[in-house]
């Protein structure tokens, strides 16, 4: 769907992107992660052909990215904004027509969207009369109205209250189900794990990690488990098949321990060792969250 190959972008005095390559497959929800100033927005602007890379190539559906693809992409920038004095209906039509829709078609689609998101009564209102959340909703509609194949969302959830963020998230998923590929940048990790199929992590102009979320998590599994049990406290000696990392007390005289498996052992060995001694309430593998991976990776570079 979108193939970004060896993109380099330099500004006077600093490098925004150095040799970044990414593959986004059709139908994916792809998360572009990274701290502020990592180069996310620079990359997004290049994909939107707002700026051009110094070197490197981008392929869209197998074709070299060109002006004809503009109408196939929908872009919601991080810095939101609409014409303040323009009526919202007219403004939406204008933006849709810039993306190649006819006037009649844009009105038809707008009616559907406005109804869906409870915006019917806004048509004649000016942007400056709307609240910030309402403006964002309108802008989201403008982004997706021309039914783009690729939807690029730069920090889509900032500025939404939790209720509307949920509405927008559902719409994104719905669009994705209908076949749209979604590329979004964020530093909200919980939304990443919830939504994304794959991610790329950018830091200081370089890509430091990418792949499917499940693959990435697999690589970062480190045989750490959490066990909750009741009974006598298990004292540690060298016979157990694990290393005790820490221990806390839970409700009803239970103990919660974090353990790391020793080389060559499995969670079954742990159970076999513990079952004769205590009553086990829970055993769970501790998989690092994207948040931890993110912080770990970024710190490693720094």
């Amino acid at each position: 769907m979108l193939s970004i190959r060896n993109i380099v972008k330099q500004y006077v005095g600093h490098t925004a992107l150095s040799d970044v390559s990414l593959e986004v497959s059709r139908g994916q929800i792809f998360g572009l992660l990274g701290p502020n100033g990592a180069g996310k927005t620079s990359l997004i602007r290049i994909v939107n052909q707002i700026t051009a890379p110094d070197s490197g190539e981008i392929y869209f559906n197998g074709e070299k990215l060109n002006q004809s693809h503009i109408d196939r992409i929908g872009y919601l920038p991080e810095e939101r904004g609409l014409y303040k004095k323009m009526e919202i209906g007219e403004q939406m039509i204008y933006l849709a027509r810039l993306k190649g829709l006819s006037r009649a078609e844009s009105i038809r689609r707008l009616k559907i969207w406005f109804e869906k998101l409870g915006m019917d009564s806004w048509w004649k209102m000016k942007i400056e009369e709307l609240s910030k959340g309402m403006q964002q909703k309108a802008q989201f509609v403008a982004t997706v109205l021309h039914e783009p194949d690729l939807i690029i969302l730069d920090e889509p959830f900032t500025g939404f209250d939790p209720v509307n963020a949920e509405v927008i998230k559902d719409e994104i998923l719905e669009l994705n189900r209908k076949g749209a590929t979604i590329l979004f940048s964020t530093h909200r990790m919980e939304s990443v794990e919830e939504l994304c199929d794959a991610i790329a992590l950018l830091d200081k102009s370089k890509k430091i990690l990418d792949g499917k979320i499940s693959d990435i998590k697999d690589t970062y599994r480190n045989n750490i488990y959490m066990v909750e049990y009741t009974g006598d406290r298990v004292s540690s000696n060298s016979a157990e098949p694990f290393e005790l990392l820490d221990e806390t007390t839970g409700h009803n005289n239970s103990y919660i321990i974090r353990i790391k498996l020793k080389q060559g052992t499995t969670s079954n060995d742990v159970l076999q060792y513990l079952i004769p001694k205590v009553r086990i309430n829970m055993l769970q593998e501790v998989i690092p969250g994207m948040n931890e991976i993110f912080i770990e990776q970024v710190n490693k570079i720094a």
Partner: peptide
Amino acid sequence: IEEKTSRIVEVIVSSV
């Protein structure tokens, strides 16, 4: 200036 400060310019230049 209006387009720049209202930030709509980024949406527009992604189309034209």
